[in-house]
Computed example of a mutant assay.
Amino acid sequence: MRFHTRKWIKPEDLNPNQTLFGGKLLAWIDEEAALYVTIQLENKRVVTKYMNEINFVSSAEQGDIIEIGIEVVKFGKTSLTLACEVRNKMTRKTIIKIDKIIMVNLGEDGKPSPHGKTKIEFVKDRLNSSKS
């Protein structure tokens, strides 16, 4: 799993127990998944269709640094299925795991559209191939 984003837990990210608010973390995960898929599919029109069971394993406190990891599990015709893990950067303890996030590629009409991708592509490789 590749960890792309780090977040520093600030006072505004906390719940009344003074630990990381789960809703804030889920919003960060949703944004990270959307960014990842947007880059992979080269299309800014992607939406979250589904997240399976969300398992909070541990928490984070103010001052902790967390990192969000995403990996592609499956390429569908109009979708990408991802897995996600969020962990504490310093302790390496898992905070949350989500085994299945389905992101759907949309066409200009706002309806699911085939994306034609079958494997992970890295931006550096796209840039190198466009120079040839």
Rank of each mutant, 00 (worst) to 15 (best):
L20C: 09
S129D: 04
K124P: 03
G110D: 09
P11E: 15
A34K: 14
D64C: 09
K77W: 01
K97M: 15
Q18M: 10
K24A: 15
W8N: 15
I101M: 08
S59W: 12
V37F: 00
I68M: 03
K7V: 06
E85P: 05
D13L: 12
E53G: 15
T94D: 09
G23R: 08
L80K: 00
E121K: 02
T78N: 05
N88L: 02
I66D: 02
I29A: 03
G76Q: 01
K93R: 12
F122W: 01
R6S: 14
K100W: 03
G76M: 03
I29W: 06
N17W: 12
D125F: 01
V57I: 15
K124G: 00
I96M: 13
I98W: 13
I29P: 00
L20F: 09
S132Y: 06
Q18A: 07
K7L: 05
Q18W: 12
T118D: 07
S113T: 04
V86C: 11
E42I: 03
I101H: 02
K119M: 00
K77T: 06
W8D: 14
I29S: 06
V123P: 04
R6L: 15
N55T: 13
K10N: 15
K49E: 12
A34V: 13
R87V: 09
L20M: 07
L35G: 13
K7S: 07
E12Y: 11
I54R: 10
L26Y: 10
L127H: 01
I101Y: 05
K124T: 04
N105Q: 03
W28K: 08
W8R: 15
G22K: 02
E42Q: 08
E67I: 05
T91E: 11
T81W: 01
T48Q: 07
G63V: 10
E53M: 13
N52I: 13
L41G: 02
V104F: 11
I95N: 00
N15F: 07
V37K: 01
K131C: 02
I96D: 10
I39Q: 15
V46G: 04
A34E: 06
T94A: 07
P11H: 11
E61S: 10
D99W: 15
K89N: 07
E32Y: 06
W28R: 04
T118E: 12
T78W: 00
R2A: 12
A83H: 06
V86N: 04
F56T: 12
P16G: 04
E53H: 13
R87P: 02
K100N: 13
E12C: 12
I68T: 09
K44Q: 14
M103F: 11
I101K: 00
P11W: 10
L106V: 09
G23E: 07
V104K: 03
N15V: 01
G69K: 02
L41V: 00
S132H: 04
Q18C: 13
L35N: 13
S59P: 14
S58K: 09
H115M: 01
K49G: 14
K97F: 11
F21A: 10
P114G: 00
A27Q: 13
I39N: 10
D13P: 10
L14D: 10
D30K: 08
I39G: 07
L25N: 02
S130H: 02
S113H: 05
